[in-house]
Write a protein that binds this DNA or RNA. Structure first.
Lengths: 231, 231
DNA sequence: GCGACTTGGTGTATAGTTTACACTTATGTC
DNA sequence: GACATAAGTGTAAACTATACACCAAGTCGC
């Protein structure tokens, strides 16, 4: 039993580069799964798998993520498609890579799901990766760093309620450079995209900061008028 | 005779959205091929075709372009991968779309190659397109418009030797808005990326303009130092 | 040969944006 | 209540972007 075609076809897979922000450790993390089988048994790889009949690429990416890591709510965007004939030793495989942003607090430990080891790693010192996943990670990071500056996707990495300092730290971690506190606040508040929740942090050993949330509706309205987000 | 696999596999194709700039008509053009066979016989589509064994996606795109239109020297960049199950009535087909920029002067008439009709169309009023190619064109245009502002890819659309007015017109056509002549010249010359060829236009019925070429080497050098091109 | 036509080429002043920079306030801990 | 920690706040200077109009050079037609 099998599926027969007149011409050879490459396999088609999806891979998800899932980023999470660890505010406590001030570090950007990536979610990886340890491979149990060859090729590359023991190495780490992005969650992903074969595209099935009658599903879109994005559905496929979401399904694989759900199956392998339990993650469901996330920001997902297509990154790039990798199709070099030698990238999978089992045969020509084209993979459509996605990158995803999740609120780390919603998906914290998440180790050992269905017998597979799943863990978060610092993007700056990942373990040895299977296939061409190191190259994919590099591209995903470059995309995230570029995109975070002109699209308000950073909020996807923060809890729904956040302080201005947390938001600033997010940008500092992703962009790997310090930002001036007063200028940052002036700029971000000036956009009018943050809603002051009139609520402050609890249980912090210093002056409690004001909490905000991102005003997505207003962002959509402003974009329609030609507004450009920029950090 | 055929190729048999344990699980079903979608077909994998590449499609190329080739842009050319018609300075005489002040119009951005896209290269299309008229389909002879069903599905969508008679409609127009991007050059493209099936990815073969042992070729990279980019090689595949270049090969198809060469075969179907004779175009070889061009700027080529991956755009997006489209894989909705219903996009090809013959069955699940994943297409990796590329967009390409060519110097129209190098590939002018190009109609009727191997019995297939090939022609340039204005991007603003294309003919009826096959498959989901209207959606792909829309995305390619959006990408071109975004990218032309922060990467010096516009030069790929101009002849090697060009005038500042031609360069300005290119941006006006692609971005669909007028630019101030003095400000444009100040900005573009200020980047130091143009080499004054100390040569002027010939055979024009008015004062002949200075010719320039793009200094690609210097651009690479500046990028390495952290320079950002921006119009 | 000269006037009309077409496009090339040039500078400055103003408004807006970005950057650099340091102290006071609020809260919990010891 | 002194200390530690992070929150919160304004201004001046440098730089960048924008708006704007005329003369120069060459061809065409008479």
């Amino acid at each position: 039993m099998g599926y027969t075609y007149q011409y050879p076809r490459p396999s088609v897979t999806v891979d998800c580069v899932v980023f999470g922000l660890d505010l406590a450790a001030e570090d950007l993390k990536v979610l990886l799964i340890q491979r149990k089988k060859d090729p590359f048994a023991g190495l780490w790889a992005f969650p992903g798998g074969f595209v099935e009949e009658d599903e879109t690429l994005e559905e496929s990416a979401k399904r694989e993520l759900q199956e392998e890591t339990g993650i469901s709510r996330l920001y997902l965007e297509q990154l790039y498609t990798f199709g070099d004939p030698g990238r999978d030793p089992r045969g020509h495989t084209v993979t459509v890579a996605y990158y995803a942003l999740v609120k780390l607090s919603d998906h914290t430990p998440k180790a050992a799901d269905d017998a597979k080891a799943v863990d978060w790693f610092s993007v700056s010192k990942p373990p040895k990766l299977a296939f061409d996943h190191a190259k994919i990670l590099k591209m995903a990071l470059a995309r995230l760093r570029a995109k975070v500056r002109y699209q308000p996707i950073g909020f996807e990495l923060l809890p729904a309620k956040f302080t201005l300092s947390q938001l600033q730290r997010l940008y500092e971690i992703v962009l790997e450079r310090p930002l001036d506190k007063r200028n940052f606040r002036k700029k971000i508040l000036g956009m009018g995209l943050l809603i002051d929740l009139e609520e402050t942090q609890k249980d912090v050993a210093h002056r409690a900061a004001q909490l905000y949330r991102f005003d997505e509706e207003r962002y959509r309205g402003l974009v329609a008028e030609g507004f450009n987000f920029e950090i």
